[in-house]
Write a protein that binds this DNA or RNA. Sequence first.
DNA 1: AAAATATACTTTGCAATACAAGGTACTAAA
DNA 2: TTTAGTACCTTGTATTGCAAAGTATATTTT
Lengths: 116, 116
Amino acid sequence: MNTENAKSQMRKGMLEYCILLLLHKGPAYASDIIQQLKEAQLIVVEGTLYPLLTRLKNNRLLRYEWQESTQGPPRKYYALTLDGEEFLRHLDSAWNELTNTVNILRSGSVAEVILT
Amino acid sequence: MNTENAKSQMRKGMLEYCILLLLHKGPAYASDIIQQLKEAQLIVVEGTLYPLLTRLKNNRLLRYEWQESTQGPPRKYYALTLDGEEFLRHLDSAWNELTNTVNILRSGSVAEVILT
DNA sequence: AAAATATACTTTGCAATACAAGGTACTAAA
DNA sequence: TTTAGTACCTTGTATTGCAAAGTATATTTT
């Protein structure tokens, strides 16, 4: 029962949201995504990211294009589809609800939330 | 790829945190917890909660006491242990990091966060 | 040209956990 | 005695994050 496992579990589901949020700003390829997430304090490894990207693509939330690189093999640049944009808005709602829930639980009883 | 599944996945790990947050305010038994979480907009079912409570108890984060009820069978009232309180503080940090991450990703680039 | 290195993408096996569905046990009322 | 209500528990399944190892392409070094 360590903190690392707890944090890893918190990532579940959140990661999908974070990827979509990131791609909403513009296309990116895997290493790119990992780097940007790291800058946002979220550590993700390849073995997690690649299957996730594939899954999102298979569900038509993402699409990709091959692009040549000047420094190595070509890259798969992923971008949101229209379905992906819509799904992202649903996840926005889900996230809002979740933060609201935590805030209520954090600040004491529901009554206290109303009073303070 | 539906929204319900996504929300269910977001719950992973968060639920543990929410239970500890709730019990931090005082002892409660299972139906109690389900009811309070529902008031905080978080739907949890018995099949999820009971194994979770048992797991937390086995890891010494929770303890329980049987208490008679005037309206049915006795209840298991769960409460945080000292280990549980400490673990809760770690989860507080993890939650703070996660919300920070999402906020960064939501508001555009890191630079934009600083500028706005 | 061959070997080594770097970059990028992929796969496999495992562990953790939410949930549906069903079950057990005790109490009180009809 | 039967029925209804409350509370606790278990089993099987699906999903997903991750470690570890593998494949492929491009560049640099020897």
